[in-house]
Design a protein around this nucleic acid. Structure first.
Lengths: 341, 341
DNA sequence: GCGCTACCTGATAGCGCTACCAAATGTGTG
DNA sequence: CACACATTTGGTAGCGCTATCAGGTAGCGC
């Protein structure tokens, strides 16, 4: 009987087990799995067979430690319920998974402090890249990122001062364009209702609306914002409050679809004709805007496209094939003109 | 000059650096961070200070390798857009993060093959636990899970044959209860429209509806299912097609809120009075059901509660404090009676 | 044949951390 | 003061894998 004072392995099949069983060296097995082209056909097949036979699953921790590289990518999102996040993740993940990366997802609930804390935990995994939402981060977050050798990607908003890579859209422009469009349609008293008022996205949208109003000599006086998450109540309340304040408002811009939904219900309750009495539009439309009655004019942002561009751009960076490629990608937006205006 | 032929470290601050700088042994630093109560106050403070000074971040891979344990939990969800997933993740993650675990999230798009493939990749991280959605998995998936020493948790559906832990609700019962409720309200010609028809959740809902109809001597003849994801079109189409088939239907049950949304629009288009002409209900209601006009009677499932119970139960298992605790938790559901019926 | 390159394979030495033991230090008892 | 005993600390040997280098084999031209 052996002295087994020292801890033994976990009992799982290791690379060494495969090597012994296949009658080759450990390195050859490692190469057969990681860089198959460096191994002769004969041995590669043999090894592949033994791998399947024994049900070998590589130990990621050991690999990461030995190589100093890691195949994990940290993704910190502010929310999982927001449309952008839900639409973004699957496409992003799919492409990265195919390239052999794992997503580790964290959730900051729109707090830069929580983002920072999460980041420092996630960095313990030594991720190949860190993906952050938005452009607002704590100083410490930025410092941690610069100290780590991880690639950094900021998504959602176009941000001139981005840390490294940046894929997003310009919320100032889209809001401005919507407002201009409404003005061109003959609407004049255009109100704005937005949620997550402390986020820079909303601030940009608000500024876009203001700018378009001012350039047409209209007063951007009627708006309502809340720092809560977008919800149906805000839409109902917004319509109610602003109409009380100024009964002859003729159009509304909502930052999010959920808010527009509440506004639509409120207008139904008041038996207001859309768009005759009032126009409703939103800056973040998708299925509801497209299907409700009447259909809502909205800005549509293609989050699937954003996810794909972001994933591809990130992979370029990780493989080092991104010489001369732009660090910033603006995925644009689409103004969808529909019945509500 | 030293010969530095052998690769050097990554350049990051290591535990050894901290130990040297604090003038203590490496083990003491390790303990100070992992089991602080085993280190004297003086040294613990000293070490903590050096850690902050140097900005030391532990290398998770090394720790996992050395200890054979891992603080990652693999979560494989079928979708990121489904309400259940969006609502589930944040609460689940929050509790587990606080307990020091990291979530690694994968996405199977409702395919058990993809689930299996994802699982085998995720197992390379040697996760402490694997969380799966639903009760349907490939044989290979079950085998992989049994071979790994990871705890296994299946969420969403109550499943008598669960692999290990199980937290969810009974979709057969909730559907049956909704049908019984409608019958008690005097509705008789009750139709069913559901999405994701190949998922066991939908099959259970369909069976619940059928059972309740049959026990009241009503024929469960009018139903429409689609294997697509729930969407607004299916609601509009479902109402249109089934009313064509049987014009005097007096009630509908929809598996998902999105479908009910489409149905509601279709009824508005047809100027049908709800619930006088027709009742609309859904089995997976949340904000829309509660806020739309008229408000929809629906089954509400508390996903936040599900996430919390699931996380707590899992932690009990991981810390081994779950002797005598049930492996299965039914979180129930609530029938919310509203204006639409 | 020899020298040369090109390719394949394997032995070795870590990657940074923690389990394990052993040693050192403090604490209380006879 | 010697002794057992608990508490705190440190040295050592891996965890399973890969980078690196060295050795081996094959193919080619002279």
């Amino acid at each position: 009987m052996e002295t087994l004072r020292k801890r033994r392995g976990t009992g799982r099949v290791t690379l060494a087990d495969v090597a012994k069983s296949a009658g080759v060296g450990a390195m050859t097995v490692s190469r057969a799995l990681r860089t198959p082209e460096q191994v002769s056909d004969k041995l590669r097949d043999k090894i592949q067979q033994v791998v399947e036979e024994l049900g070998y699953i590589p130990n990621q921790a050991a690999g990461a430690l030995a190589s100093g590289k890691s195949d994990s990518i940290a993704l910190i999102l502010p929310s999982f319920t927001d449309k952008i996040c839900c639409d973004f993740i699957p496409f992003f993940q799919e492409i990265l998974n195919q390239a052999g990366y794992q997503l580790i997802i964290g959730y900051s609930s729109y707090s830069i402090t929580q983002e920072e804390q999460l980041l420092s935990t996630l960095l313990a995994n030594n991720p190949a890249a860190v993906v952050l939402f938005g452009s607002e981060h704590s100083a410490q977050t930025v410092k941690l990122l610069k100290n780590s050798q991880a690639a950094v990607l900021e998504i959602a908003e176009i941000n001139e001062l981005c840390i490294d890579l940046n894929v997003g859209t310009d919320h100032y422009q889209s809001s401005k364009e919507m407002t201009r469009y409404l003005i061109k349609q003959g609407f004049q008293k255009i109100a704005f209702v937005g949620a997550r008022s402390e986020q820079s996205i909303l601030r940009k949208q608000l500024r876009g609306w203001q700018a378009a109003m001012l350039e047409n000599y209209l007063a951007p006086d009627h708006f309502l914002t809340s720092n809560d998450e977008p919800n149906i109540e805000l839409g109902s309340e917004g319509v109610a409050k602003l109409l009380l304040q100024q009964p002859d408002l003729d159009a509304f811009i909502f930052s999010h679809e959920e808010i527009a939904m509440g506004a639509l219900f409120e207008c139904q309750r008041r038996v207001l004709q859309i768009p005759k009495d009032i126009a409703l539009t939103c800056l973040d439309g998708s299925t509801f805007s497209e299907k409700c009655i009447p259909r809502l004019t909205s800005i549509e942002i293609n989050y699937a496209k954003m996810a794909k561009k972001a994933a591809r751009r990130l992979l370029e960076r990780l493989t080092g094939e991104d010489q001369g490629t732009s660090k910033q990608i603006d995925i644009g937006f689409k103004l969808c003109e529909r019945a509500s205006s």
